[in-house]
């Protein structure tokens, strides 16, 4: 949903950090994007290529690790990371919607992971 502005922020941050280290170029950027963010990885890749053109990131490799959603049951404390949300988010022909309910006790699951968007690191040429 907000891929362009998010990717712009990523590119600006990377350039800023690269300048601090007197880099000539950035050749790889590694991101961690949670599956519960509203960011489409394909769109981020597209925006990254477009935005980095003409900058020290042009032609840079982009590695994106998609992190799974992690839930914690508010009642029994169970950590649940096996709920597959791919059908929910990407396959609108799926016959059923997954339920975000604790498989052990049936109570509410709190989201504890999968909403992150993190620049893990970068590879620079000095």
């Amino acid at each position: 949903m907000h891929e362009y502005s998010t990717t712009l922020a990523i590119v600006e941050k990377v350039i800023d950090e690269a300048h601090k280290r007197n880099a000539k170029r950035v050749i790889c950027v590694e991101l961690k994007i949670g599956k519960l963010t509203l960011l489409s990885v394909e769109q981020v890749k597209f925006c990254f290529e477009a935005i980095s053109k003409g900058t020290m990131l042009e032609g840079c490799e982009l590695v994106i690790e998609q992190t799974p959603p992690v839930f914690k049951c508010q009642s029994c404390g169970r950590i649940e990371n096996s709920i597959n949300i791919d059908t929910l988010l990407y396959d609108h022909t799926a016959p059923s919607i997954p339920s975000f309910v604790c498989p052990a006790c049936g109570n509410r699951l709190e989201i504890v992971g999968g909403k992150e968007c993190i620049i893990k690191g970068m590879r620079i040429v000095v």
């Binding site: 998010t6 922020a9 990523i10 941050k13 990377v14 950090e17 280290r21 880099a23 050749i27 909403k115 992150e116 968007c117 993190i118 620049i119 893990k120 690191g121 970068m122 590879r123 620079i124 040429v125 000095v126």
Partner: peptide, 11 residues
Amino acid sequence: IFDIELDENLQ
């Protein structure tokens, strides 16, 4: 080449 760890959370 240098690998730089950033761990920068955009949110």
